[in-house]
Design a protein around this nucleic acid. Structure first.
Lengths: 209, 209
DNA sequence: ACGATATTGCCAAATATTTAACAAAAATGT
DNA sequence: ACATTTTTGTTAAATATTTGGCAATATCGT
């Protein structure tokens, strides 16, 4: 029996979480799959199906308790604990991510920033000093880092990834325009920004035809 | 008859484009779907199926000519023309995107940057002066802008989107953590960074169980 | 020049995902 | 208290996507 949850479902969970947070902030107490479907844009059937992968959180004739469901999805997403994160590559993007305070509010705690550029090493960004990337290996040995954000250029990304794998970092969030080769036991999420632009470009071309 | 290409296929096109560019740079002349499958990680069958949505670019017993295929996919993606783009919100992320030179090399030309913060308005980023967002509407009337990158906070995003829709901007690349409500004729790509982190978090939690 | 090999394009089968349908259970109104 | 309405959880049907199989055709080696 295959009890693993499909990727399609997993990728929708953050959106549920986001919308439930909004409802919670607006003091909405309960919501039906139908009502939720109208604001979130999935079908009611899909919402019920998705949630039932994890348990029966609703109640017939009533719907779902917003606060409970929000907390349940938080638990499913692993938001009950905090994660230590590092940024490698403190260029524009790395600095932008370092300054994103909202990640911290979800429990992603930034504990280190690394770069190889001597002009950037030593700078303080969001209260954290940028360290030379040559010292990263040692840092990872002394700190139990969960997630690394790779914000280097294409050339440096695989080199950095190899060190991260060796140091048993658990996940990589990769912004470099390259698909990293890593061992099975490390999870990678790629953000290929240019891919999104090309998708837009595809549709703009289509429109003109 | 439904002749529209599925989103699953469209989302893979940029990856084909990326890998073909790499092969081209390495002076590889021809490639079979089997060889490509080994480096790109899709099945050979899927690759052939994907490409055949747009035409028979290959040749039996030979495979695909790398340069031709690269160009064809570029054409499919609409990379034969240039697009005028603007950035709204010149915070850390907006500035990072403004400094991304690689977008330009794909034909996405940055023509304006807007912000509401008086401390930022007037700054020059990558050769472009940041303009007050109140002047954006007028700017859009005088310049045929194709794509707008929304890098504002959650609060400002919908307000900005409404102006963009009115000004007949064709596409929005939205980095604000909100799902924009826009008319049908404008294309939106969302980049919800936090969603990716939550996906990683989901899998980290799974690992521990 | 010709047989062996490689490889596409396409169709069909297998999987995966989404949507529809509905019985069962809870809530609501009178 | 009881009929009506709401809404879930779940099963089944419908769609969509991916993979496998193979005839047709080109290339390659001799």
């Amino acid at each position: 029996m295959d009890n693993s949850i499909s990727m399609a479902v997993i990728k929708r969970l953050p959106k549920y979480h986001r919308y439930l947070k909004e409802l919670l902030d607006r003091d909405v107490k309960r919501i039906s799959s139908k009502e939720l479907s109208e604001i979130i844009g999935f079908t009611a059937s899909q919402i019920r199906q998705d949630l039932n992968n994890f348990g029966g959180f609703g109640q017939q004739g009533y719907g779902y308790n917003v606060e409970d469901l929000y907390k349940e999805i938080g638990k499913i997403l692993g938001l009950t604990k905090t994660y230590k994160t590092v940024i490698i590559g403190a260029g524009n993007l790395g600095q932008a991510l370092a300054n994103y305070t909202s990640f911290g509010s979800y429990g992603f705690e930034l504990v280190g920033i690394f770069d190889k550029n001597p002009k950037i090493v030593g700078l303080e960004i969001n209260g954290i000093e940028v360290t030379d990337v040559d010292l990263m290996k040692k840092f990872l040995e002394n700190n139990d880092v969960d997630i690394a954000y790779i914000c280097t250029n294409k050339t440096g990304a695989q080199f950095v990834a190899d060190i991260l794998v060796q140091a048993k970092v658990k996940a990589i969030w990769n912004f470099a325009p390259v698909d990293l080769k890593v061992s099975e036991d490390i999870r990678v999420e790629n953000v290929h920004l240019i891919d999104d632009l090309l998708t837009l470009s595809y549709f703009l071309k289509e429109q003109g035809e």
